[in-house]
Design a protein around this nucleic acid. Sequence first.
DNA 1: TGTGATGTTGAATG
DNA 2: GCATTCAACATCAC
Length: 263
Amino acid sequence: MPELPEVNTFQRYFDETSLKQKIVIVKVQDDKIIRNVSGDEFIDLLTGRTFTGSYRRGKYLFGILDNGHHLLLHFGMTGDLVYYSEVEDQPRHERFAFHFENGYILGFDCPRKFARISYIENLENYIEEKKLGEDAQRITEDYFLEKMKSKKGSIKGFLLNQSILAGMGNLYADEVCYQTRIHPESVSNKIPKKKKQELFQKMQEILQYAIDRSVNYKDYPENYLFQWRVDGTIAPDKKSKVESATIAGRTTYFSKGWQKKYT
DNA sequence: TGTGATGTTGAATG
DNA sequence: GCATTCAACATCAC
């Protein structure tokens, strides 16, 4: 269930379990999610290798290999990592797995197969090709304001655009809009500067809050919109009702009475 | 039984 | 070139 904070949690998990051990066996149960090489090539490329570190940018997690290459783990909607040693702990929808020297296994679970795995020889080139923006937590306020100036689409679409800033997903974008009282359909370059700054600050705050606690959406405080993503419920501000609409192609929850639309 | 779900991408359209 | 919309990807849960 990964947006930036969740992928950050995956990174921690990956770092704690899978670094500095040789991969002795690679198993591929379903190579559909492996994008740029075949299942057999994947096995050849990774057998005998060791992960020395990781790098996360938005929702993209790159495992750093001991030959300087990278393995991209993108979790899609339902990707998950499971480190286990007993066969019965193997996740139900494991698509591939690394067996380490110590007998433990890192399995990549993914029911919906929306994940994307790529073997990358040159990370800079890959990021360039994909036009992957800088991580949402590493951009500056100036950059954020500057980018918004020229954008005529909805603020929701802006926040979701991974080539401008990487890491915001559907739920977090709604949350940031809600907390800054900006209607998600607002036109990006029509939002007053002060509100834009607020948007930037809130985004940082919400992401950091989630990262600090490795939280799930459900663990958020009640005044967050997260657990109120139901039409017609009373919004956390207690006065307005939550409604939904499709904005920027995604189901978006907001509260008309609470959030102002700048057009 | 039908519907929609945390994400990305490519095609089609304006 | 840009922005937007839609369908597709595959499975599960309600």
